[in-house]
């Protein structure tokens, strides 16, 4: 069960519409290392996680990623909501506009729609937590790249916040991997899958 709080986890207050920035930031909405994929990855993986403490962590981080999806949605809304048709053409937003007007649609910056092929849920704690650590690093790199491409301080501020969260999540997943390893056979901890043994 989820509840909704009518607030953003971190404030977004962008004064200047900017279609070019929206075109790249949309990748963190529905792109390969975006917040939607992150949330679905963790919230799906947790069912096969034998350690309840780690399943709980996946629930909490998966939930926070939904809040991040909302932050990215707010950024896209504020960047594109007041664009004029001239700006849409001039800033190359016309190819998006023709399909979605200025609605928020989960896709990568390249235009590829969100697909679950961006993520895995392998049903093996070591494999899944290793993927999660990599996913946090990839998302951090995407935010680094966004920071190289935008110069409006109103955009930079929430993007920096989201980047920092990736680093914290990476740290927590590393600790969770340690918790899973501690429970396995220390001599050969990847010899079997603790989520599917003796079957």
């Amino acid at each position: 069960m989820w509840g909704y709080e009518k607030r953003l986890q971190y404030p977004v207050n962008i004064k200047k519409p900017d279609a070019k920035a929206a075109k790249i930031i949309i990748s963190q909405y529905g792109g390969p290392d975006g917040e939607l994929g992150a949330s679905l990855r963790y919230l799906s993986q947790r069912f096969a996680m034998p350690d309840d403490r780690v399943a709980g962590l996946l629930t909490d981080i998966g939930t926070e990623e939904l809040a991040h999806l909302e932050i990215i949605g707010a950024i896209l809304y504020q960047l594109t909501g007041k664009l004029t048709t001239d700006e849409i053409i001039k800033e190359g937003f016309d190819t998006y506009f023709v399909d979605h007007t200025v609605g928020v649609y989960p896709q990568a910056a390249s235009g590829v729609p969100y697909t679950a092929a961006f993520m895995q849920s392998k049903g093996d704690p070591i494999a899944d937590l290793s993927e999660d650590m990599a996913a946090e690093q990839k998302a951090r790199v995407t935010y680094d790249n966004i920071l190289r491409l935008v110069d409006d301080p109103d955009i930079i501020d929430p993007i920096r916040y989201l980047r920092q969260r990736e680093i914290v999540h990476y740290q927590r997943f590393g600790e969770a991997l340690g918790m899973v390893r501690d429970k396995l056979n220390s001599k050969n901890y990847y010899a079997y899958n603790p989520a599917f043994r003796n079957r």
Binding site: G56, L57, R172, E175
Partner: peptide
């Protein structure tokens, strides 16, 4: 709320 979000994750691995 953010302080609590951060502490919640920390406590998940440092109970």
């Amino acid at each position: 709320s953010f302080a609590m979000d951060e502490l919640r994750l920390f406590l998940d691995t440092h109970p």
